[in-house]
Nucleic acid binder design. Structure first.
Lengths: 139, 139
DNA sequence: AACTAAACAGTAACTATTGCTAATTGAAAA
DNA sequence: TTTTCAATTAGCAATAGTTACTGTTTAGTT
């Protein structure tokens, strides 16, 4: 008899809904929204619900199968410094801090060289544990 | 008599609400949310409304006084490629494309060197006109 | 002081996302 | 193969961030 452990990984099931969503995402590079994925999925599974799409997107992200493109949360943050500068986002506490390193214009040049388009500006964010949360986690 | 022109810039007024919001934003580096700004503003102007906060944030952003940190829209986009790679966001049509350039691990090293924290990964996005919109704008 | 369009407060509406519940189902065990 | 059961689902209600609307106020000009 095994004692319940917080290390125990929840068993994942491969459902046709999840499979469909993953196939849709893998077959495009257009970085679609949940709503678009939902519309596509309904072409294959007409009864799939939007909630299922969101739940599977979360699960797939958690398992490292896909990426979600936002700033760690769905609402906007505002920055009183309009000069371009880089940010560090703590994945634990959600804090957003400025990173004290110079902006690198050569990144934009490289992007233009590979045909990305006409670059006006760029954004760079680092994700990880801020010094405070890092200390807390260590024990 | 002057013909109405789409080039005419709307006259901006400096209201105490706008001034307060800008001061709040300029006095912090914590990248606050609209709601936090609203709460702070109410300490000075108890009757200010949340709508006013949002309206002024938009205006201030439009005038280049502040920055908004999101992916160009409030909802998430998903990416079927879980490998880190860079993105190009078209400010005109909103399309998100992959940028065909290698990921630069040294950026993370630099961020750690300046004390940002423990970096797990980073994200780099370029903003500008995609080749298609660029062609359209040119005439 | 008078004027007027910009901005306001208050509130309703909208939209992306999450939570809830009873029913269904994938996959492991029998 | 059948049984079993927790993971997952559909459908829908609820949240939450943001935007739109309306009548009133006000900054800045005349």
């Amino acid at each position: 008899m095994e004692r319940e452990s917080h290390l125990k990984r929840a068993a994942r099931r491969m459902t046709k809904q999840k499979k469909t969503i993953l196939e849709i995402l893998r077959s495009t590079t257009s970085h679609p929204t949940a709503d678009w994925i939902y519309a596509e999925a309904r072409k294959v599974l007409p009864d799939i619900s939007l909630g299922t799409v969101y739940r599977n997107l979360h699960v797939l992200k958690e398992d490292g199968e896909i990426m979600e493109l936002n700033y760690g949360s769905t609402y906007s943050r505002y920055d009183g410094n309009p000069q371009n500068h880089y940010h560090f986002v703590c994945v634990n506490c959600g804090a957003v801090r400025d990173v004290d390193m110079p902006v690198l214009p050569e990144l934009e040049k490289r992007a233009e060289e590979v045909g990305a388009g006409e670059v006006f500006y760029h954004r760079l964010e680092f994700y990880g544990l801020c010094p405070h949360c890092r200390k807390e986690k260590r024990m």
